[in-house]
Amino acid sequence: MSKLRFGVVVFPGSNCDHDTFHVLKDVCGQNTFYLWHKDHDLNNADCVILPGGFSYGDYLRSGAIAKFSPLMKELQEFAHEGGLVLGICNGFQMLLELGLLPGAMLRNKNLKFLCEHVHLKIENDQTPFTNQGQKNRVLRIPIAHFDGNYYASPDIIEDIIANGQIVFRYADREGQITEVANVNGSVENIAGLVNKQRNVLGMMPHPERASESLLGSDDGRIIFKSIIHHFTNS
């Protein structure tokens, strides 16, 4: 099968773009390229990734200024047409600001920047991003953020749960959903969620930092493997 085309969007202040590029190109062996946020062309990407970092210095709100980058117009159209979009950390914050995913991010409940490995429970393995995982499997992947306290109003949360949109929840190593494991205070321990159509995933943890066993965990590679599997089998 020919290689997939992955576009990694670069904003001023992105700092996980190179890690993501490395994993997709060198570890997963896919055709990977950067997309500049001021361009108007997704370069025929099969999957677009909004990487982590601090776009525009997190000024105003995390992801709020990136929302107005020229390329976001094409990204919105791509997402609405069913194109796969993965937002990691700051990328997740952008997807919320863009309205491609419901809800918003608040400052972490303990007001600290959190940089540590956490455990995630896979809640939904029927998405293009998790088809190579199994429901209830626990992944060990790092987080690094200040604003990861996911919030949405109770009616939206009800809707998200009813539609099976929660993909990852913060859990303990046994997969129990506990208050202690909910490091940033997110509603329902939400660490990652998809849109109703399942083609847009936002997640706070960094799978690109856990895609090689040399780095302590390769659990994050499941997400990239799943995307590749999704195209191979469709």
């Binding site: 105003l60 709100r61 709020a64 107005f68 919320l96 600001e97 809800g103 918003a104 608040l106 919030y151 949405a152 109003s153």
Partner: peptide, 8 residues
């Protein structure tokens, strides 16, 4: 549109 996020 810009200054506030109406969700929160």
């Amino acid at each position: 549109k810009v200054l506030a996020n109406p969700i929160i």
